[in-house]
Amino acid sequence: MLIGELADRTGTSRRLLRYYEEQGLVSSGRSPSGYRVYAESCVDRVLQVRGLLDAGLPTRIIKEVLPCMDTSRTIRISEATDETIATLERERDRMTDRIRCLERNRDAVADYLDAVRGARDAAPPPAATPAETSVLA
C-alpha cells in the first residue's frame, strides 16, 4: 500500500510515517515509480508504535523493543542488555504512575459530574419571567 493509504488506515500523518521510517520503526519498499510501498503488516506496526509513544516511551526505546514483538499481543524473548532492562523498568514504573494519576483525575471528574447532575436535578425549575407568563396566558 502507498503512504497515503497507510496514513488513512492508521490516522497517522504522512510526515510522521516518514519520521517513523527514518527512526527505523517501520520500513517500506519502493515502487518502480519511486513511491514508498508498505506491507499490510505495517498497519499493525504503526498502531503499535503510536500506542507505545502514547504510553510515553521514547522512539529509541521503542526501536529496541519492536524486534521483540511479533504482533501487538505477543512478545518474543530476546537478549536484552542490563541497560535496556533497567530503562524498560523505569518506563513501566513511569507509566504506572501516569495511570494512577489518570485514574485519580477520571474519578474526580466523575465525582464532579455526579455532584453537578445531583444539584441540577434537586434544584426547583426556574420561575417564569413576566414576559413568558403573558405569552403563556
Rank of each mutant, 00 (worst) to 15 (best):
residue 135 V to S: 11
residue 126 P to K: 11
residue 82 D to W: 02
residue 9 R to A: 12
residue 103 E to F: 06
residue 125 P to F: 02
residue 71 T to N: 01
residue 93 D to C: 06
residue 37 V to T: 11
residue 86 A to S: 08
residue 26 V to C: 06
residue 74 T to P: 03
residue 46 V to Y: 05
residue 93 D to I: 08
residue 80 A to G: 08
residue 10 T to A: 00
residue 55 A to M: 03
residue 78 S to I: 15
residue 23 Q to T: 09
residue 128 A to P: 01
residue 66 L to S: 06
residue 93 D to P: 11
residue 3 I to A: 01
residue 109 V to A: 11
residue 68 C to M: 12
residue 63 K to Q: 09
residue 124 P to Q: 03
residue 87 T to L: 12
residue 42 C to L: 09
residue 8 D to L: 00
residue 4 G to R: 10
residue 105 N to H: 15
residue 135 V to L: 14
residue 21 E to S: 06
residue 87 T to G: 10
residue 33 S to Q: 09
residue 113 L to C: 09
residue 103 E to Y: 05
residue 30 R to M: 12
residue 61 I to P: 00
residue 48 Q to I: 02
residue 47 L to G: 15
residue 103 E to V: 13
residue 135 V to T: 15
residue 110 A to G: 02
residue 71 T to H: 02
residue 62 I to Y: 06
residue 109 V to R: 09
residue 97 D to E: 15
residue 132 E to R: 07
residue 75 I to A: 09
residue 81 T to P: 10
residue 25 L to Y: 01
residue 31 S to D: 06
residue 70 D to K: 07
residue 67 P to R: 00
residue 12 T to Y: 08
residue 41 S to Q: 08
residue 22 E to T: 14
residue 56 G to P: 02
residue 65 V to M: 14
residue 114 D to E: 12
residue 47 L to H: 15
residue 131 A to H: 04
residue 17 L to W: 05
residue 106 R to I: 09
residue 101 C to M: 13
residue 37 V to L: 11
residue 136 L to Q: 14
residue 115 A to V: 10
residue 129 T to P: 02
residue 123 A to G: 07
residue 32 P to F: 04
residue 114 D to Q: 10
residue 40 E to M: 13
residue 71 T to I: 02
residue 89 E to G: 07
residue 88 L to E: 02
residue 123 A to Y: 06
residue 72 S to C: 11
residue 90 R to C: 11
residue 134 S to Q: 09
residue 13 S to I: 14
residue 14 R to F: 03
residue 98 R to Y: 09
residue 41 S to N: 05
residue 96 T to Q: 10
residue 128 A to K: 05
residue 70 D to W: 00
residue 46 V to K: 04
residue 85 I to A: 05
residue 47 L to D: 15
residue 55 A to C: 07
residue 131 A to E: 08
residue 91 E to I: 05
residue 40 E to D: 15
residue 109 V to E: 07
residue 41 S to W: 03
residue 6 L to K: 02
residue 135 V to K: 11
residue 19 Y to K: 05
residue 129 T to R: 07
residue 66 L to Y: 03
residue 48 Q to H: 01
residue 25 L to N: 04
residue 27 S to N: 04
residue 22 E to Q: 14
residue 64 E to G: 11
residue 46 V to N: 04
residue 61 I to C: 00
residue 18 R to M: 12
residue 39 A to P: 15
residue 52 L to I: 13
residue 51 G to V: 00
residue 18 R to D: 10
residue 84 T to H: 07
residue 68 C to A: 07
residue 131 A to K: 06
residue 103 E to H: 08
residue 34 G to I: 01
residue 36 R to L: 04
residue 15 R to D: 14
residue 86 A to W: 03
residue 37 V to D: 07
residue 102 L to Y: 07
residue 128 A to R: 08
residue 43 V to H: 08
residue 85 I to L: 08
residue 126 P to L: 12
residue 20 Y to M: 06
residue 89 E to L: 14
residue 24 G to P: 13
residue 112 Y to P: 00
residue 115 A to G: 08
residue 63 K to W: 03
residue 94 R to C: 01
residue 133 T to S: 04
residue 64 E to M: 13
residue 129 T to K: 06
residue 105 N to T: 15
residue 8 D to S: 03
residue 115 A to Q: 13
residue 10 T to Y: 00
residue 53 L to Y: 01
residue 112 Y to V: 06
residue 17 L to D: 06
residue 6 L to Y: 09
residue 2 L to R: 09
residue 105 N to I: 14
residue 119 A to T: 01
residue 98 R to E: 13
residue 78 S to E: 12
residue 83 E to H: 10
residue 27 S to H: 06
residue 20 Y to H: 12
residue 45 R to W: 06
residue 37 V to N: 04
residue 29 G to D: 12
